[in-house]
């Protein structure tokens, strides 16, 4: 595994941080609005017994982490269009090495976003929970973001530059709504809830909530997210090998 390349590539994406402000601002605003709406009086969520403020924080941190990962798609489309991937094909970098470099870059940015949102919830909104539960929750969300990093690579690889934006919008809207990251799924019709069980964002949020709670069946979300990850990884490495040929 080309660790040096992976490290350089991840750091390079961190330098692009200013462009990520926009993907950070929306979950931040939503956290501040919904957080003070639900959280002020300290109600608890009925099934888990978690404070609503924490539930909302995990939801928004999941959303923010997902957006940070998904937005890597734009960098990838641009890199491809200038021929960077073709140049990489004349190096020993394998499809897997390429994938790992992109995923670790996305995860680094996502970790930063998720941690920031949790800190804002603690400091500004006064959310209280054991440190171990915060950490477990952040780690759970972070792991749950992996398939989204892969979705970003797939969008970046398949979409022409002019289609990346609309495709990104459809994916993130669908994932946000269906996964219950914006509005709790409880208020949705039952058919939406059954579709929700197939999308990774639902399980991302679920895993985050389990992390915050400290108990629960973490195996199902991990399994579903792992299946998404494996399927996307196969697709992406296949595409990377084919992609080098001139069009």
């Amino acid at each position: 595994m080309p660790f040096r390349y992976i490290a350089l590539e991840s750091l390079r994406q961190l330098r692009n941080l200013p462009s990520l402000v926009f993907t950070f601002v929306v979950p931040l605003m939503m956290l501040l609005i919904f957080g003070s709406l639900y959280g002020g009086s300290g109600q608890q969520e009925a099934t888990t017994g978690l404070p609503w403020l924490v539930v909302t924080t995990v939801q928004m941190a999941s959303y923010g982490g997902m957006m940070a990962a998904l937005s890597q798609a734009f960098a990838i489309t641009t890199e491809r269009s200038v021929g960077w991937n073709r140049q990489l094909r004349v190096t020993p970098l394998s499809g897997i090495g390429y994938l790992v470099s992109k995923v670790s870059a996305a995860l680094l940015v996502a970790l930063l976003t998720v941690t920031m949102l949790c800190l804002v919830s603690m400091v500004v909104l006064g959310a209280r929970m054991d440190a171990s539960h915060w950490i477990l929750s952040i780690i759970s969300i972070w792991i749950g973001v992996i398939p989204f990093a892969l979705i970003a690579v797939a969008i970046g690889q398949f979409a022409k530059p002019q289609f990346a934006q609309p495709l990104f919008t459809v994916v993130f809207l669908g994932m946000s709504v269906l996964g219950g990251l914006w509005i709790p799924l409880a208020v949705m019709p039952s058919w939406v809830i059954s579709i929700a069980q197939t999308v990774p964002s639902y399980w991302l949020n679920k895993l985050g909530q389990i992390g915050a709670h400290g108990t629960g069946d973490a195996l199902t979300p991990i399994m579903v997210l792992a299946i998404w990850t494996a399927a996307l990884a196969v697709l992406i490495t296949w595409r990377y090998r084919r992609d080098a040929a001139r069009q």
């Binding site: 080309p2 040096r4 390349y5 490290a7 350089l8 590539e9 390079r12 692009n16 641009t78 890199e79 200038v82 021929g83 960077w84 073709r86 140049q87 990489l88 004349v90 190096t91 020993p92 970098l93 090495g97 001139r246």
Partner: peptide, 20 residues
Amino acid sequence: GGALLPTTTVRQSIALVAAA
């Protein structure tokens, strides 16, 4: 069509390829 990354410096682009 094989090029460097527009947002990087020359050194950074070369360093990335070198690392691969």
